[in-house]
């Protein structure tokens, strides 16, 4: 019997074949780097086919893996090609980008804090990136890194609270939600600072 799951599997197989065919054809390194994103969407496609709450929870790790590998690979690409030196001065010299960031970024950050947890961190981080890209930055790289490191430790502590003292689940969920928010926001906002301007 052919049901929705099987139709989805056929479609996914077809997409995987097409995506990997592009890796056979493409020889340029930068284009390959961009195509990896296409490939990793296929992994999410297959997980989503399960269609339960568990699948929804598994998509998040799948997504994060992609982001972090892409981040590392992009930086390797920049160093490998030796193109990190010549930075464009201010290519995005558009009036809106001078006036809008403060409002838009604060909306995004506030909404991210309101959401909390991982997706909240992503939204808030996006706001911070947007602000930094438009306005330039003067933060201390290491300080944000340290904050993000402590947030990670708080997260691990929450994990052990749930394992060892399950009755304190409420405390653990609150710590985890807050810590992931800070961690993801800090990490993402650092991407904005890595665009060029030297750190203070």
């Amino acid at each position: 019997m052919i049901d929705t799951f099987h139709i989805g599997m056929f479609a996914a197989s077809l997409c995987i074949i097409i995506a990997f065919f592009s890796f056979m054809k493409e020889t340029d390194d930068l284009h390959r780097l961009l195509l990896t994103d296409l490939a990793s969407v296929m992994a999410l496609f297959l997980i989503a086919l399960v269609g339960t709450d568990l699948a929804e929870a598994l998509i998040l790790p799948g997504l994060v893996v992609t982001i972090s590998k892409l981040m590392a690979l992009t930086e390797i690409y920049l160093v490998k090609e030796g193109i990190q030196r010549n930075q464009p001065a201010r290519t995005l010299d558009i009036e809106v980008l001078q006036s809008a960031p403060a409002i838009l970024a604060s909306i995004l950050v506030l909404y991210g804090i309101f959401l909390s947890g991982f997706s909240g961190g992503a939204v808030a981080g996006l706001g911070v990136i947007f602000y930094i890209i438009c306005k330039g930055h003067q933060e201390r790289f290491e300080l944000i890194e340290t904050v993000s490191g402590y947030a990670w430790v708080a997260w691990i502590a929450a994990f052990f609270i749930i394992l060892i003292f399950p009755s304190q689940w409420f405390l653990a969920v609150m710590i985890a939600g807050g810590a992931i928010l800070i961690k993801v926001t800090a990490k993402l906002s650092l991407i904005g600072t890595m665009r060029g301007e030297s750190d203070v």
Binding site: A57, P61, V65, S68, M71, T74, I162, L163, K187, M194
Partner: peptide
């Protein structure tokens, strides 16, 4: 959150560690 933090918490630990390593390489 029940799945991510409680029943499959170890997955999320590994996931955030991957993010941490990816970021450490870039930094």
């Amino acid at each position: 959150d029940e799945i991510l933090y409680a029943t499959r918490g170890l997955d999320t630990v590994v996931e955030t560690t991957i993010l941490f390593v990816g970021f450490a390489v870039a930094a």
